[in-house]
């Protein structure tokens, strides 16, 4: 081995090393809303894990549900000169000034889980969110497929009246069953997204529908209401999962327990992994200059009893749900 070869080798390894170091040096700040729900806690946990996977220096600022804290966090990230900022906006408006500051500092901002006012569209790189209309549609399509042409009366447990997620999941489900005249919603009431109200409303549905005999399926806008509804059905001597089909949305750990016990049939996941696709978009943008689409839609994965629910439960139970 002569001197030239040695120099070449060291240059190559130096170049390789510097590429590795560049990825490791990527610093991203995340202004998280706070810990308003189990899902939010799981999102934080998963974001940290995804950052570790990609060797990213990840800083999380908990805003405790306050916009002013989020604005402060973004300003401090800008001052620190981070490579990118993730923002889960607590409200849709009032971001113009602070996002302009980030833009002037040439720091790309990625929105996670929630969108902001359309007027601010040019102020962020991309938004990674789930499409709640699509979630409802996936649930509806599953039911149409499972009902298999037989007449099927559905009772619906809606989320909080006026909440956009509830409106969207209702619309999506209606779209999903629109083609099937055998599947129709016979009753629909709000269960406020809670277990207790889900149970109470289901109790009344059972009584109003001849002791539950005319109910073919329950659709709940979230898993928590479904967990309550499953209890109500069991207490009424009905067999959820076999006599009455269930489909809900979110994929929280407890619904997988019910699925493993054969008491629930399907759930559509609202993935807590919003940060993963966001990291990938930022890395591609930083290294190759690839402009991501303005909206990255996360997958709304359908889980059924065939998907080894106990294993999913085990993988999800420590995420903070």
């Amino acid at each position: 081995m002569n001197l030239r070869a040695l120099l070449l080798a060291s240059a190559v390894s130096g170049a390789l090393f510097s590429v590795g170091a560049q990825a490791a040096e990527l610093t991203i700040g995340f202004s998280q809303i706070g810990s308003e729900s189990g899902w939010r806690a799981a999102e934080t946990t998963v974001s940290k894990a995804e950052a570790k996977k990609r060797n990213i220096n990840f800083k999380i600022a908990d805003a405790q549900q306050k916009q002013e804290n989020q604005i402060k966090a973004i300003r401090s990230f800008v001052a620190q000169g981070v490579d990118a900022i993730f923002l889960a906006p607590v409200v849709a408006t009032g971001w113009d000034a602070v996002l302009k500051e980030a833009q002037e500092a040439k720091i790309p901002v990625v929105l996670l889980d929630r969108d902001i006012d359309p007027a601010g569209k040019n102020l962020y790189l991309t938004a990674v969110t789930s499409d709640s209309v699509h979630e409802g549609k996936v649930a509806g399509q599953w039911l149409v497929k499972t009902a298999g042409g037989k007449p099927c009366n559905v009772v619906e447990l809606q989320g909080t009246v006026g909440a956009s997620v509830a409106t969207n999941r209702k619309k999506g489900f209606e779209d999903g069953i629109a083609g099937a005249s055998n599947v129709k919603i016979v009753r629909s009431q709000t269960g406020d997204f809670t277990r207790a109200k889900g149970k109470e409303v289901m109790e009344s549905f059972i009584k109003a529908e001849g002791g539950g005999k005319t109910i073919c399926a329950v659709y709940a806008h979230n898993d928590d209401m479904m967990v309550g509804a499953i209890q109500a059905m069991k207490e009424a001597g009905l067999k959820p999962g076999t006599e009455i089909l269930t489909v809900s949305i979110d994929a929280v750990p407890d619904i997988f327990k019910a699925m493993a016990a054969g008491e629930a049939n399907a759930t559509v996941e609202l993935t807590p992994n919003m940060a993963g696709p966001a990291f990938d978009a930022v890395i591609a943008y930083k290294t190759k200059g690839t402009m991501p689409p303005k909206w990255i839609q996360t997958e709304s994965k359908l889980y059924t009893q065939a998907d080894n629910p106990m294993a999913v439960y085990e993988s999800k139970k420590d995420l903070g749900y």
Binding site: S37, R195, A196, K199, D224, V227
Partner: peptide, 14 residues
């Protein structure tokens, strides 16, 4: 009673 009813404690909503 509320906790026993849903077999769990939901601090946000109970």
């Amino acid at each position: 009673v509320a906790s026993a009813d849903i077999l769990g404690a939901d601090a946000n909503n109970a």
